[in-house]
Amino acid sequence: MFDATRPGLPARPGVGYKSRHFQALMTDPGPVGWIEIHAENCMGDGGRPLAQLQALSARFPVSVHGVGLSIGGEAPLDRDHLARLRRLCDRITPASFSEHLAWSTHDSRFLNDLLPLPYTVATLARVADHIAEVQDVLGRRMLLENPSSYLAFRESTLTETDFLAEIVARTGCGLLLDVNNVFVSATNLATSPQDYIAAFPVEHVAEIHLGGHDEDRDDDGAPLLIDSHGREVADPVWALLDITLARTGPKPLLIEWDTDVPDWPVLRAEAGRAARALDRLHAGG
């Protein structure tokens, strides 16, 4: 069905690509060894976005990260959108393709948010079918990312980690472990992020995400973290990364910074911090 032997992303820091960092990335990448693009930002017919992407993909391994496929949607996948993803992958031959355990489209209308799913046997069957279809159309293995959660479904019958493990078993997909999402979800639902990492099927992790979050309070004054990607990665998330890497071994580490995007030196410094986390691991620390 797909070629599992093609080279993936290097176990080095990467950054989510923003066009304002194009020149800096080409001339002063620092510790950055790969980049991730949002697929839906690269689906025009030409112009600067595709020219930059072409130049970047000649220089760096590229991860294509979809934010609009609605893999958890109750409706069938959008075939036109799948075809666009296929064209993009054919154009730049990315080192990885990933999407989210979430839904974002209803009645052919796109809601532009990653919406939550109940972890039930019915959801499992639907998501597994959709992932199998994606992997068929793209001719490659995809990675599925754990979500950041603000609420839970009373109807859920599986834990998120068991759900993801079962998806992997059914589809052969890999996993993208977002450590900030783990911390955000655990804080919001009063569970243990360390227990989550301990239960995670780490042998299938092919990429790790790190990003910043905002802090708010819920109706009862309990902490409510928002997965905003608008600041530095928080210290407890870096600590959770060390625990995660101890289980997974060295992995490609992505810094996501999507709102209030900083100047390049700030983002490069975050990538440097990710590089040091990998160095500590190699040093056996």
Partner: peptide, 8 residues
């Protein structure tokens, strides 16, 4: 609402 995920 957007008719596709391509916000451009």
């Amino acid at each position: 609402l957007p008719s596709s995920p391509i916000l451009a």
